[in-house]
Computed example of a mutant assay.
Amino acid sequence: MAPLNIAIIVGSTRPGRNGTAVAAWVHEQASGREAATYEIIDLEDTGLPLLDEAIPALVGKYEQQHTKDWAATVARFDGFVFVTPEYNHSTSPALLNALDYVYAEWNNKAVGFVSYGTSYGVRAVEHLRGVAGELQMADIRNQVRFALPSDFPDRVFTPGPEHAEQAADLFDQLELWAGALRTVRS
């Protein structure tokens, strides 16, 4: 079987964001895994405006070219790692917006979470689990959590050895579910 394709989605577009450093670390941790290839997708690069499709995504009739491009991007992956900050007990508006744009392209795919914030970003992940369920995604239990400011001393991302262990557990579980769901989609 061909290796799985997993996207690491940088879920923040905020100036001065920590998400790019966290996503780069996740990608580095995933390098060398045999069951899957991992690729970073930065929402800043997608050009998605605030949701501007007149027809709900559930219908699957996308009108805007940026939506069609985003749908094609999402469709080519078997699973996802959402790198999310926690803003006001939830995730970033940019990530929610990107999730809302398409529907069927998310279905029957696995998703894992890497979060950061003053409460380790766990409330953002809890919110995303409900969204993932509505998009018919299988959210895995294991996640990686970073605390602000302790894991970002002097605003420099500094993960510890426990984070590498958490990431390995996340990848193992994500790849297992993504592989199983690939058979469901076929």
Rank of each mutant, 00 (worst) to 15 (best):
L50H: 13
T84W: 09
E63M: 08
G121E: 07
Y103L: 09
G60E: 01
S92H: 01
P85M: 02
L96G: 10
D100A: 12
L96Y: 06
A36M: 08
S119P: 00
V83T: 05
A94D: 10
S92G: 00
E34I: 12
H66V: 08
G60D: 01
I41N: 03
D45P: 07
K61G: 12
A98G: 08
L95A: 02
A35V: 10
R76I: 02
R33W: 09
V102T: 08
R33C: 05
G32N: 11
I41G: 06
D100I: 01
N107T: 13
L99Q: 00
E53T: 06
L58V: 15
F113T: 10
A72W: 10
R123K: 13
D78W: 05
H66A: 10
V125L: 03
F82S: 08
F80L: 05
T91C: 02
D52G: 14
V81H: 04
K61Q: 15
G117V: 04
E63L: 10
D100W: 03
Y87T: 11
V59P: 02
D100G: 14
V111E: 06
A110T: 07
F113P: 08
K68R: 14
L51N: 04
A72N: 13
Q64N: 14
A94L: 10
P56W: 05
E105F: 09
G121S: 05
F82A: 14
G117N: 05
I40Q: 09
I40V: 07
H89T: 13
K61D: 15
Q65N: 12
A35K: 13
I55G: 01
K61R: 14
N107V: 06
F77C: 01
T73Y: 05
A71M: 12
L58R: 15
E86Y: 07
D45A: 14
T118D: 14
G79V: 08
T118Y: 14
L96F: 08
L48C: 09
D42H: 06
E63S: 12
V122E: 00
Y62D: 03
V111F: 02
V102H: 06
A110V: 02
A72R: 15
V81N: 04
V74M: 09
A54N: 14
D69Y: 04
V102R: 03
S119D: 15
H89N: 14
D100S: 11
I41Y: 00
G79C: 13
L51R: 03
G32Q: 11
L51V: 00
V74I: 15
G79L: 10
F82Q: 05
S90H: 09
A54F: 11
G79Q: 11
I40N: 06
V83M: 09
R33I: 00
A124K: 09
F80K: 03
P93S: 13
L99M: 05
V125R: 02
Y62H: 08
F77A: 01
G121Q: 07
K68L: 13
A71G: 11
S119A: 15
T73F: 07
D78F: 09
P93M: 08
Y120M: 14
A72I: 11
G112L: 08
K109V: 02
L58K: 15
F80C: 09
S92A: 10
V111K: 03
